[in-house]
């Protein structure tokens, strides 16, 4: 079985991010770039398929040459090979433009299964996995919190607010996983040292026959008109306990009002 795991380079989730007022994108200089933490769950799931079913796993990244350490980081978990799409024309693409490039890059490979993280920690649109499946004409099994492969059948537990649905399809298919699916391992020393010698192919949009009128900032359907700083944190509500039990009622009412229960 061949598995592809698309990953993304994102600004460090814990870091303080700044928007560049000129081009309205994240100022990459202001914060360290890392492998998107949600991708670690997709990689772990792929590693389990590699260990249990001898799957061959390739990581795919769209991003500039400077993002190569992120591909190596993904490889350090034990994946077999990498593909990186490097092309200046991609810069500023929105979710659809990115999906266009990813779909072409995936179509150029042989695969039975594509495993995405359900969202990236920077944009959080959750659009890309389904858009890629749509472009490729493949079943999309999104928000998977459990995944099983039996022959050429895939079954996932699709997470939603009230629990999960059991969704089945045939392979090839595109899945996106949520963080509840597993507990990612840490890369081993061996994996880290081996990552530098794993095969890594670099492709341009031309190689992939991508229609450049559909990618890049000029062709993005999503446009950012304005951005503001995060509003200051509002003071919390203090519930005083006067011993009468009224505080408990107040607390319960507050939880209901905020829809926590």
């Amino acid at each position: 079985m061949k598995v592809l795991v698309p990953v993304k380079r994102v600004p460090d989730t814990a870091g303080e991010k700044k928007i560049d007022p000129n081009d309205r994108t994240v100022d990459r200089e202001s914060v360290e770039s890392v492998l998107c933490p949600v991708n670690e769950f997709a990689i772990e799931e792929a590693m389990r398929l590699k260990e249990q079913q001898d799957a061959e796993v390739t990581v795919l990244l769209v991003g500039p040459e400077s993002a190569q350490p992120v591909v190596r980081k993904a490889l350090s978990y034990g994946l077999d090979a990498g593909v990186q799409v490097v092309d200046d024309a991609v810069v500023g693409s929105d979710a659809l433009g990115t999906a266009e490039v990813l779909a072409k890059a995936l179509a150029a490979e042989e695969f039975d299964l594509v495993i995405f993280g359900n969202q990236s920690t920077d944009a959080r649109t959750c659009l890309v996995p389904a858009a890629v499946a749509e472009i490729l004409g493949l079943p999309a099994l999104t928000y998977a919190r459990h995944l099983e492969i039996d022959g050429d059948q895939i079954t996932v537990h699709r997470e939603h607010e009230e629990g999960w649905d059991v969704v089945e399809s045939s392979l090839p298919a595109v899945v996106s996983v949520v963080e509840a699916i597993n507990e990612p391992r840490y890369p081993s020393f061996k994996g880290i040292m081996a990552a530098k010698s794993k095969p890594l192919e670099v492709r341009s949009l031309d190689d992939l026959d991508v229609d450049t009128s559909r990618v890049g900032s000029d062709n993005a359907a999503a446009i950012m008109y304005e951005f503001r700083d995060r509003p200051p944190k509002e003071p919390g509500t203090i519930v005083e306990d006067d011993g009468s039990g009224a505080a408990a009622t107040q607390l319960a009412d507050w939880l209901v009002e905020k829809k926590f229960v």
Partner: peptide, 14 residues
């Protein structure tokens, strides 16, 4: 080296 630095970071995270 780049690999030693990657390794150091992984152990630090762990």
């Amino acid at each position: 080296t780049a690999e030693q630095e990657s390794f150091r970071r992984v152990v630090a995270e762990f």
